[in-house]
Design a binder for these strands. Structure first.
Lengths: 339, 339
DNA sequence: TTGAAAGCGTTACCAC
DNA sequence: GTGGTAACGCTTTCAA
């Protein structure tokens, strides 16, 4: 009863034509004041809401849009990705519809479905940690909606994506610690069933291996969340070990912030006693004391490219677009003593 | 020539009906494989793109949506506001279309126009620093699109809004410094023609006035941007004065971070020599050393309420919804010596 | 000042 | 398997 009032309902009730009703509702000139008032009154009473689909269709308007699905809009990295997407989307006259999956697989699916039903021209998605390949891509494929995976991909995934080279980044970070004289390097990571977490963990292992350092499970932590608190707690545990680490490579800057916080409170000298390298080059990394050595992640550029990939595959669905951004080490104070 | 291919164009070219074409394109069962192939081939050749407006109309689908315009999506505060908006929007089955104004008035107008033309059910906008009342609201009013202003309002504005009480917040922050023995309190603010900047400046003045401290223009800075670098530079200047301040109240946490950075590099003891209070309670405030005393700004809650206000005024355009969030002081290390 | 009718591009329902 | 026709809800001629 609520959202169903149409032009013709008003017209019939008032014994006038839809044309007149339309005129009244749209502030057109050629209309009797009295008629107009009656229409407006009834419209309000019926809670009339114009059907924008019909209006746009009739006006021969057309809208291009993309759907963006992110695990967490408030997260620094993702918000920069969004920024990049929006820049290129606006440049190409696409509306940007955003949804937050909150890392939930079901929410992700719901959003994909909603967006596809809505008729977005494409979908850019940064899958959450729980996300399952089949659930997402199958639907997208079936609807023939172009899509681009961002930041995380699934095993055996062969479609469009933009990634940063997490393996290489982690390898570089860990190697950097080794080159600076550290031998007992811990890793505080995220779950290994998520591609980002696993890649960074693998890169860490690879660097150890390349340098003849054997893996020690006692100084490797797998955390559920990648927040500061986890870093704090893990550091506490690691430093309480009989044979504590002399360096920590963390999966995110936030976790590293927790490490540094622990060190600060317990008078542990960084980097002398404990060197720290984070991941992302988020804002905090140059604000925190000591400033954090980290791996740069070009979120904005990734977002821009993700849009470009969608746009290209929209024109030509055959060609697959894939890009892995190289990882760059940003050396600051937390890993190398200032000369 | 590009985006104009319709079902009927394909049908005519192949001498079949639109029905059949539709069937082919939609993977329906009852269709000759050969016909189907011909249709798909031609469709690709003509770069056929289905008109989603027509589809939705025919399928009696309806979409509710809101447009959100923010100065900077990558900014912590705004990204939390967006988060809040999205939560309630999804709860009420509204799509969220996001645009970034980059603080530019013209971009803002363009987005408003675009969104309104598109037919969003409402607009939630955090006006940029340059934003002009008339430009934005006039258009919205004329299109009868409900809207809610967030974070910043214009003088004499009488519509829907959600704000935080910047005046009160600044007053509380400044009073806190005074109560802790500081008498010469500087302010590093943003432009006074922006409501946020002006309100915080005014609150600062009010606190001084309440405590019998006279305003001294030499320790009041008005900055173009509210970034860390500005804070650093301003601190350098302020501390070089003959009669330097013993405390600084900054318009944002980022600026405060610059102040603290300067102090750290120049061995100035915080809060003993210089107490610092920021604004926003952004992530960095509890990460930075010393931890930053600041004023809490409930971005997420503001976003949620902004949506609720839109939703309410959508049903009943007469009632005006306004809310000013109280400001709460979060005391940390930068303003009070740890006992 | 008003109304009838056409049409926006698509899909659904029937016939064939 | 296929095609004709109506319909989705609105705006826009054109004529009255």
């Amino acid at each position: 009863m609520s959202d169903k009032a149409r032009l013709i309902d008003i017209a019939r009730a008032l014994n006038i034509s839809t044309t007149t009703v339309s005129r009244a509702l749209n502030n057109k000139s050629d209309i009797n004041a009295k008629t107009k008032e009656a229409v407006l009154h009834l419209a309000k009473q019926l809670d009339y809401q114009p059907n924008k689909l019909a209006i746009s269709l009739r006006k021969k308007m057309s809208f291009k849009s993309i759907g963006v699905i992110l695990p967490n809009v408030g997260h620094y990295f993702f918000s920069t990705v969004l920024k990049g997407i929006m820049r290129n989307a606006h440049l190409n006259n696409h509306l940007v519809i955003v949804g937050e999956s909150a890392e939930s697989n079901s929410q992700e699916q719901k959003l994909v479905e909603e967006f596809v039903n809505y008729g977005v021209n494409g979908i850019l998605i940064a899958p959450g940690r729980e996300s399952k390949n089949e659930d997402i891509t199958a639907l997208l494929e079936s609807k023939r909606t172009p899509y681009v995976l961002m930041d995380r991909i699934f095993p055996n995934y062969t479609g469009n994506y933009v990634l940063s080279d997490d393996f290489k980044g982690a390898e570089i970070a860990t190697t950097h610690l080794i080159e600076n004289g550290k031998r007992r390097i811990a890793h505080i990571g995220s779950l290994h069933n998520c591609s980002v977490g696993y890649q960074r963990f693998s890169g860490y292992l690879s660097a150890l291996d390349n340098n003849g350092i054997s893996k020690d499970d006692s100084i490797i932590r797998e955390c559920l969340t990648t927040k500061m608190e986890e870093g704090y707690k893990a550091t506490q545990e690691l430093l309480a070990l009989e044979n504590p680490p002399d360096a920590i490579f963390t999966v995110t800057d936030d976790v590293a912030a927790g490490v540094l916080d622990y060190c600060h409170r317990h008078q542990i000298e960084v980097p002398k006693q404990l060197a720290v390298v984070g991941y992302s080059n988020s804002e905090l990394s140059s604000i925190i004391k000591p400033k954090l050595t980290t791996i740069e992640q070009k979120g904005e550029r990734m977002g821009e490219l993700a849009f470009d990939f969608f746009f290209a595959s929209y024109k030509d669905k055959e060609t697959i677009h894939q890009k892995t951004f190289e990882s760059k080490l940003i050396v600051r104070e937390s890993s190398v003593s200032i000369k």
